[in-house]
Each structure stands twice: as structure tokens, then as C-alpha cells.
Amino acid sequence: MSAETAAEHGATAAGHATEAASGGMPQLDFSTFPNQMFWLVVALVVLYFILSRVAMPRIGSVLAERTGTITNDIAAAETYKQQAAEAEAAYHKALDDARAAAAKVIEESRAEIQKELDLAIAKADAEIAARTAESEARIAEIRESAAEAVQTVAKDTTKEILSSFGVSADGRSVTSVVNARLKGGAA
């Protein structure tokens, strides 16, 4: 390519005649290289100091702090979990104790009631026995008096019948006969 065309092209593309010799690619315009390199180095140095002195320690510490916080929180959560488990165990234990105490109280009161009941029954039994004995005694008494009355009536009746038949009989023999008959009848 001739210098003339290059110059013409450079003029159209670059817009100013000073760069004509360097052609149409601004990337290959060596006259701007020192400028670009200088400002690039300035930018990189500034950036490096911004990042390494301010930004990175800050982010690093925040990340470390976060990791620490998360670890602590997990540990705390573990502790709370442990505490919750302990509380649950204590609750269950208390429940069991209460249940056992209740069972004991029930057992005790049942035993007491049983005892009282037994006592009352025994008392009642005794009373019943006493009444029964009394009643039997009275019945026996009544029966005895009744038997006596029967004997007397029988003797009297026998005497009367014998006398009406004209037979005089002594009281003693009549009595022994009647007694013998009554005994035989009773037997």
C-alpha cells in the first residue's frame, strides 16, 4: 500500500493528520502508547492500593466475622437444643414422678379406706353376733317357758282327766308319767 493511500486513509479514520503515518488502526498508533501506558500504570497502582489497603482487608474481616458468627450461632443453637432436650427430660421425669406419687396416694387412700371398711365390717359383724346371741337367748327362754307351761298344762289336764274318771292319782306319779311322755314326744 502506498504512503499516499495510507495517509488518506489515516486522515479519514483518525480525523487528524498527525497520525497519518501510523495507519488506520488506533491500536497501532505508537504515538499514543506512552500516554496510555502511563495512565494505565497510574490507574493500576491506585486500584491496587484501594483494593489491597482498604477493600480486601475489609471484606476479609467481614467474611471472617461472618464465619465466626455463624459458627457461634450454630454452637449456641446446639446448646439451646441440648437445653431443650434436658428440659424435656426433666419434664418427663417430673411427669413420671407425679404419676408415681399419684399412684402412691391412690394406693394409700385405698388401703386406708379398706382398713376403715374392715373395721366397720368387723364392728357390724360383732354387733350382729351380739344381737343374734341375745335373740337366741330370748328365744331359748321363751321356748323354755313355753315347755314349762306345756308341762304344767299337761299335768293339770292329766290330773283333771284322771279325777273326772274317778281315779285319784297322786301328783308325783302323774308328773313322772307326763315328764316321760313329754320327753318321749320331744325326742
Binding site: T32, P34, N35, Q36, V42, A43, V46, L47
Partner: peptide
Amino acid sequence: VGVFTITNATLWLALSVLAIALLFI
């Protein structure tokens, strides 16, 4: 374009640095 001339390249380099500083600081 001299060595220390402030060019459009300088502007956009500065904008990059500024944007990074904004984000990270």
C-alpha cells in the same frame, strides 16, 4: 497526545477505578 495528556483513555481508566472503588469501598 503527550505522555501526561489527559485523554479519553485516561477518562475511562479513571471511570473503571472509580466504579471499582465505589463498589468495594
